[in-house]
């Protein structure tokens, strides 16, 4: 009896996974089609020429570089600020601490359209031109959250007496951070950083409000939908984006797991 119900579950799970990932397979397939207008099935022929065309188009490269630059900058800001906030909040308890934590996490829970609108209003009020910097700031608001969450969870699991032991053995605050705290939170930083990078890399909504005339890769996709030219090229770029965002996420999962193995999952 037990095995039959588990087969049912397996089928359900398989259907769920198929539903989630079938569209991705379609994209994968039509990156190789030899026909450039419609999604006829099966594709009349397979070719690699779209990869060459994609590689030769400057607008793609520019959008890609901008996205990488934005993601790198936003991640860097998030790593520094997120770690500092986590260090400040994880151990102390004071009036209003929970509200501060909530305010910090809000940008990721709030609809991006609100964050984007609010940022745009502030940017124009401040008389700034939307561009690279404003995109970075917009992305940093939600990148900080993932770094903060990762680091604060790790800090809570680290026994505080390690820090006291380090000070007791003659290390000042800076040495204690470098030799004891940083190695303890290193994988959390890496995991949080990669997640932040992936989040920023495919962000559309906040970016639409803060980008001005700049075009990040996701924005490029959107604009490509309205003036379809060599449609399979978008599929080629999509495969590339899948790879770029998937790898860090897989890696960050690995890192979190290996930390748990090292510490026996306990504490």
């Amino acid at each position: 009896m037990r095995s039959s119900s588990s087969i049912g579950l397996k089928i359900a799970a398989g259907m769920g996974l198929l539903f989630l990932h079938f569209p991705l397979l379609i994209i994968l397939l039509y990156a190789f089609t030899s026909e450039d207008k419609t999604y006829k099935f099966p594709p009349p022929g397979l070719t690699l020429k779209w990869f060459a065309i994609a590689a030769s188009r400057n607008d793609i490269w520019e959008a890609l570089f901008l996205s990488v630059k934005v993601a790198a900058a936003a991640t860097l800001i998030a790593l520094v600020l997120g770690t500092m906030v986590a260090a400040a909040l994880y151990r102390s308890s004071f009036f209003g601490k929970d509200s501060i934590t909530l305010l910090l996490i809000l940008p990721i829970a709030l609809p991006g359209i609100l964050t984007g609108l609010a940022l745009l209003t502030s940017i124009t009020r401040a008389g700034l031109d939307p561009g690279f910097l404003t995109i970075v700031v917009g992305h940093a608001t939600f990148c900080i959250v993932v770094v903060f969450n990762n680091v604060v969870a790790r800090l809570r699991r680290m026994s505080y007496s390690q820090i006291e032991a380090s000070m007791d053995l003659g290390a000042d605050a800076l040495q204690t951070f470098r030799y004891v705290v940083l190695p303890n939170i290193a994988t959390a930083l890496l995991a949080g950083g990669m997640l932040a990078f992936a989040l920023s890399f495919d962000e559309v909504i906040v970016t639409t409000f803060t980008a001005g005339k700049e075009e990040t890769l996701p924005i490029w996709f959107l604009s490509e939908l309205f003036r379809p030219r060599d449609r399979p090229v978008t599929n080629v770029v999509a495969i590339f984006v899948i790879a770029v965002t998937l790898l860090p996420i897989l890696l960050s999962q690995r890192l979190t797991q290996s930390f748990e193995e090292m510490h026996g999952g306990g504490k």
Partner: peptide, 21 residues
Amino acid sequence: LPPYAREVNTVFQDYALFPHM
């Protein structure tokens, strides 16, 4: 004086060993 400026050392109840070393 902060802990690192005192000529005393401590053995902690949970040992507080550095797990990464």
